[in-house]
Simulated assay, not measured.
Amino acid sequence: HGSKASASIEQCAFRTVNNKLALDKDFLSLDRGGNLTIRSTSVQKIIENYRPVLYIVVSEKSNVILQQVNITSCEIFESSSGVIHLQYYTGGTVTLDQCQFRYNIAVTYMYEGYKPFAGALLIQLCESSLSSSYISGSEQQQLDSTRMLILNNCSFDNNIGDCGGAVTVSGTRTLLQEERLRFIRCFFENNRAGSTIYFGYMPFGNDIYFYINGIASNK
């Protein structure tokens, strides 16, 4: 919790003893401003009610690294985000390197397709009056030059979300234009937006879904 918080997790495996019972809180949560490193770690068969498995809030002083992290067969009932939720404020860096997301499910009841999130990863671009770069009285803020999100050599296989199958990026048009978001040599296969099961007319993206101020686009 807080800008001076720092945590490191390496060569660990997380799973529940009874994979039929759902948790009611975040499995792992990092508050705004903290640093987090997770390497060579697996998270398997975690079931949550409503909340993501990994909830990470990123701001100016954050440095988040997930390297060789495997998220497999996790599920969220009545979800409001993906299995991993990155709530991204005005600065900081996030790197996902050689991570695998397989067979994760995050859907609403009956796959309505009206909530903008995907099964594996929700990247939520946010503004905040609490940010040090917020310009008082202007309702604007200057994004920190360190703000960058990189997904390198990551694979997304057989994930199901509501409007998006694998990855959803949400926010405003301005934030999306100023965000340095890079997908490098990533692999997508057999991901599916749950809305296509019953509500094929809803906007969706099986692999990457952009939800920007009510203007939807997909890939």
Rank of each mutant, 00 (worst) to 15 (best):
L30E: 06
S155N: 05
F188A: 03
R102Q: 12
G165I: 04
F183L: 14
A120K: 04
C126W: 03
G200P: 14
T90G: 12
R39P: 00
R32Q: 09
F14W: 09
N206D: 15
A13S: 15
N159D: 11
S79L: 04
S80T: 10
L121M: 15
S132N: 09
Q140L: 13
V94L: 06
Y89D: 11
V167H: 03
I46V: 15
S8K: 11
N104D: 12
V69R: 01
I84Q: 05
S80C: 10
F77A: 07
C99W: 03
G200H: 09
T174P: 00
I135S: 06
R102H: 12
I65D: 08
I197N: 04
T41A: 10
G214E: 09
M202G: 02
I65M: 14
I71E: 00
E127S: 13
S59C: 14
C126D: 09
E178S: 10
L122I: 01
L21P: 00
S40R: 11
G92Q: 10
L181C: 08
Q177E: 15
L28A: 13
N158P: 00
R15T: 12
L149H: 02
L28W: 12
Q100W: 01
S217Y: 07
S59P: 02
I76C: 04
P116F: 09
N49P: 00
I212M: 05
D144R: 02
T72E: 14
D207G: 01
L121R: 01
I105Q: 09
L23M: 14
T172Q: 06
F204G: 01
A193G: 07
S145V: 10
Y50S: 07
L130G: 06
V83H: 02
I215Q: 13
K61Y: 11
A166S: 09
L54Y: 07
L151Q: 10
G194L: 08
M148P: 00
G92H: 06
A106Y: 07
V169H: 10
L36K: 01
G82F: 11
P116G: 15
Y50F: 13
G2S: 11
Q87M: 13
T93S: 13
Y198K: 05
